[in-house]
Amino acid sequence: MTEITDTLPSTKPMSPTAEAMRRLRRNPVAVVSALILAVLVVVALFAPLIAPYSFDAMDRTYAVMPAPPDAKHRLGIDNLGQDTFSRLVYGARVSLAVGVFLVLIQVVIGVSLGLLAAYKRGWWDTLLMRLTDAMFAFPDLLFAILLVGIIRPTDPKLSFITVFVALAVVNWPGMARLVRGQALALREKEFVEAARSIGVTDFKIVTRHILPNMLSPIIVAATVDVAGMILAEATLSFLGIGIQPPYPSWGRMISDGRPYLRSEPMLLFYPALALGVTVLALNFLGDAVRDAFDPRLRE
């Protein structure tokens, strides 16, 4: 599998995207990772159809809880009699949503502000840098915890939103910095200067030349971030301020299962495995995408 990507025949010319997709399809790591993520997305979307029980249904027929897997509960039940498999399925919803939405928000904010700062320079740049400085310098966990305390709505169902907002506010500056740095470097490159000299508009330069060329670091950073956000939600849950019970997220399940580490380690293992596999798949896919789109790898 190792030699595939390096020895692609390039007999007929293709569009860069098609070429990249072709390379991606022939990378087994990428395919497996994408498959896993696709399965997870399906699971998350159709959780109520897939899960045999509701996430908060308590089976009170057991004398000892938590209980190991049996015919009724394929991954066992937790200490309250809730079906672990069902909670994992519903947990995928929360954890994936947290990861994907947050990174999308980050990319949108980060890319627009980062490009603006790098391209307009002047006080735009100064303002953004001061703001990101402050946000960056701020202990992010401290900030998130404080924010969660304040914006926690009275309706516990909205605790999702609280977590989204808190983590989004804390995490966008990283992306903004990255984009700005890349853009600063790119705008000095010959091809950008050439474009500028023949009168191409700023907007076009940014969208046609600068943005595509910084795609790979953005993708690398974003995939790391999706994982980071899922873990950040887990940490908030660990501190008792993440997703509110009875709603499950993998992070919540991990922190709920932690005291059972030595008696019923599977309570911790299953959500940790789900989390670990997802994070790995995201990272492998991110790397593969990066390689596939890299123009220098194409020859």
């Binding site: 790591v29 497996v32 495995l273 596999v277 790995l280």
Partner: peptide, 8 residues
């Protein structure tokens, strides 16, 4: 989740 297993 066992799809990942084939990879060494």
């Amino acid at each position: 989740m066992s799809e990942i297993q084939p990879r060494a």
